[in-house]
């Protein structure tokens, strides 16, 4: 009976997480368009529903009924596979992301995470890295020059930015003496890591932007020079898979920033709020940050992107490890 309940709980939580993740991009597109609108002196969507609230649904219906076009010269198998490869890793990542410690409902203690792995952080970085295969395959399978150029850029960009990103979190791991995200959050109960690791956060934030392929690092889909980059040839739902994946990566990177550097669900003692609310508030702030940046910055050029990655971020992240080490001694 006990084990049945436990399994039921896990399955229930899984279903809830998947449902939330599938629904999440819908309000996010609306919010992004509203933010864009207000930054750009316009209103954003206003027609469908109250203040355009139903606009994402209209978009969804449109995407569903769009012709699902596969170019003649494309590699049909890989072309179909690529959006799925791009979509699955962001879902997998959320297995290891806790949104709180635990709550007690109807006498049962429910943990607010699916799995507490002792290598949680490593797992997250590794799984998130798989997403790039979807993008590379999409560009390659499309058999279009713009798409290939886009995926070539992705390749180089991901390799260059995953290294400083990995290094930037080592400082955090050193402080917490653990790679489990629960332990990392617990270690910040007194003092958030942003105070002790500002450099690490900076590197993580910048490489996070590059990882999510957002402006100023959105070269894989640089509209100005590549049309739409790697998803030039995609239409309908296949195209929307890439969009959903992009939004989920933004959410997961924001969550990581909160967990690693901003104390997770620990709030400020003066303002009493439930831990989960604290976490969600901080999460929304970082998601808003991503969107805010997108509409204020131009885009870097390919070689500038590379030199920032290798000449600035990598040395900085190594210096961060060194400084953290010296202080811990």
């Amino acid at each position: 009976m006990e084990s049945f309940l436990a399994i039921g709980l896990i399955v229930g939580k899984l279903a809830v997480v998947i449902a939330i993740l599938l629904i999440l991009p819908i309000p996010l597109t609306w919010i992004e368009r509203k933010i864009a609108g207000h930054i750009q002196q316009r209103l954003g969507p206003m027609r469908v529903g109250w203040h355009g609230l139903l606009q994402p649904l209209a978009d969804g219906i449109k995407l569903l009924f769009k012709e699902d076009h596969i170019p003649v010269e494309a590699d049909r198998f890989l072309f179909t596979l690529a959006p799925i490869i791009a979509l699955v890793p962001p879902f997998l990542v959320f297995v290891a992301i806790p949104i709180g410690d635990s709550i007690t409902l109807f006498g049962t203690e429910i943990t607010l995470y699916l799995a507490d792995m002792n290598v949680g952080l490593l797992y997250i970085l590794a799984v998130a890295g798989i997403e790039v295969y979807g993008v590379i395959l999409a560009g390659w399978a499309s058999n279009s020059k713009y798409a290939v150029l886009g995926s070539l850029r992705t390749c180089a960009q991901m390799i260059s930015y995953e290294i400083p990103m990995g290094f930037s979190v080592i400082g955090v791991v050193m402080l917490a003496q653990s790679m489990s995200l629960l332990d990392i959050v617990e270690s910040q109960a007194g003092l958030w890591n942003i105070v002790t690791q500002p450099l690490g956060f900076f590197v993580f934030f910048v490489s996070g932007l590059a990882e999510a392929q957002r402006i100023p690092f959105d070269l894989p889909e640089a509209e100005g020079d590549l049309g739409a980059g790697y998803h030039t040839e995609y239409s309908g739902m296949r195209f929307s898979f890439f969009m959903i994946s992009e939004y989920l990566i933004v959410v997961f990177l924001s969550a990581l920033m909160v967990l690693l550097f901003f104390g997770g669900w620990h709030g400020i003692a003066m303002i009493p709020l439930p831990p989960v609310v604290w976490f969600l508030l901080k999460l929304s702030f970082f998601i808003w940050m991503f969107m805010w940046l997108r509409f204020t910055f131009p885009r870097y050029r390919y070689d500038q992107l590379m030199s920032i990655g290798w000449k600035v971020l990598l040395p900085l992240s190594l210096a961060n490890i060194l400084i953290s080490g010296v202080f811990m001694l």
């Binding site: 100005g224 910055f297 131009p298």
Partner: peptide, 16 residues
């Protein structure tokens, strides 16, 4: 020109 290098917002201000 800013839009060509990726900054979309300026165009909407100049259009105003």
């Amino acid at each position: 020109l800013p839009m060509d290098v990726g900054a979309m917002t300026v165009l909407l201000y100049t259009m105003r």
